[in-house]
Amino acid sequence: MKGSAKVKVPNGKIVEVKLDFDESINSIQILGDFFMYPESALKELESVLVGVSSSESEKNLTWIILETLKRNNATVIGVTPDAIANVIRKAIGNEVESNKT
């Protein structure tokens, strides 16, 4: 199945997720006009998210994103790990009650 979702982070930038998933995420692209450097950290994050269960909670997704960005010494501006996690959940179509993005 394919899914996508796009949000404008309040006081931030646009983040969009396009993914292909079944029980787990098969492929994912995180797009937008946010800033992240080193820029290679985003590719690394997408790689880490492939294989993650598509029923993973927003909280766990946030943790995975946070840890990956930390490991890559990434600086992110205009979007936050929890905003990315929220958009991933929306893209999977399993939107949780949180609507902070």
Partner: peptide, 9 residues
């Protein structure tokens, strides 16, 4: 375009 944007989009 920005580094993380889709050219076709």
């Amino acid at each position: 375009i920005g580094c993380f944007q889709s050219m076709n989009d």
